[in-house]
Amino acid sequence: MSAPAVAAAGVWKYFGDYPALRDVRFELQPGECLALLGRNGAGKTTLLRILGGLSGASKGAVEINGGDVRASETRAKIGWLGHSIGLYDELSARENLRTFGALYGVTTAMITEWLAKVNLSHVADSPVREYSRGMRQRLAVARSFLHEPKLLLLDEPFTSLDDKAIALLQGLLAEARAGGATIILSTHQIREAMELASKVALLDRGKLVHFGERTREMVEDPGYLYRTYGGAA
């Protein structure tokens, strides 16, 4: 059997003496999609940042496809989409994608292709500063999918997106999953998350209080999960 796509083994994260994550352990197989739920301050972003190699675990270990996150080859297969768009305002769309593409070894042809895919070809050479909110978001989505990541980490992806961008993102996520990519997304919006997810994880004050398959009840009744396992807002 091959290594799991994501393996968190007893992950702790301390801020001083306060444990923001407590003994989080779970495994995801390639092609699974995990919805990471929990109220503000439950540790969703902290966990995502550790999985993406932005932050180190205080105790325990994280393995992505059997490799260390801070190994360059591992991160070459991770796509990150945070709260903010992660783009340079003063550079054009093409320059932005070229810069990030160069770090991942993406060809110019693929960049042109992606610009067309997110419908930005006509403005590819104007600075991002001049873009509308929706255009910036589409470019951010292109930036995180550019290198065909095997693991996608999305922090509250639906909160800041407009309808068009949400549709685009959902399409791309479905496509990526079909291609065997693993997805973890943290979210407040239970409905969108449930439509995509195959697994559900619930964090409460740094503890993983539930990890399991997505069930019918969860999709039909948004309050079900919180009522059953706690951690409600």
Binding site: S72, R75, W80, S84, I85, G86, L87, Y88, L103, L153
Partner: peptide, 15 residues
């Protein structure tokens, strides 16, 4: 800092 580009850079393959 604007747009949290530092996060994208740190999560990229660049050390």
């Amino acid at each position: 800092l604007p747009n949290d580009c530092i996060d994208v850079l740190v999560s990229s393959p660049a050390s």
